[in-house]
């Protein structure tokens, strides 16, 4: 999970008393802002066709980690030349379909294999 780089050097609040509640809230809000910063790094996604789905000539792509999985699905549809309404089912590790609002970063941290996030795609429901 996104530990921010400056966490090692930050100093703890020098005094913790019930009187400085406002300072604590301010510090908490600043911390939240730092956790909100989008991860600009990229991760490698490997697309693998399942069943009758067409194979991609290039199947390794670097995708920005802060993207949502929905963006990966849209990217894949475009690469495959899929029209709106053409069925496409996507899975991680031949096992499950992630929630479309989950981020690539979260999925990569939990499910990457040898440095790749493996996304399987199919024209029919497979492991739904």
């Amino acid at each position: 999970m996104a530990g921010s780089p400056e966490t090692q050097t930050r100093s703890l609040p020098s005094v913790w008393t019930s009187g400085d509640a406002n300072a604590n809230i301010q510090e908490a809000l600043e911390a939240l802002e730092s956790y909100k910063k989008k991860d600009p790094s990229k991760v490698v996604v490997r697309f693998k066709a399942v069943g009758n789905a067409p194979i991609m000539k290039q199947n390794l792509y670097k995708i920005t980690a802060s993207n949502r999985f929905q963006a990966v699905i849209q990217f894949l549809r475009k690469e495959l030349g899929w029209k709106a309404g053409d069925p496409l089912f996507t899975y991680i590790n031949l096992a499950f379909a992630p929630a479309p609002d989950d981020t690539v970063s979260n999925l990569f941290k939990s499910f990457s294999t040898e440095g790749h996030l493996i996304v399987n795609y199919s024209t029919t429901a497979a492991w739904g």
Partner: peptide
Amino acid sequence: VRIYLPDGPVLQDL
């Protein structure tokens, strides 16, 4: 486990 921060984001890890 997922962590939900106020107004986002959602964090997940092993």
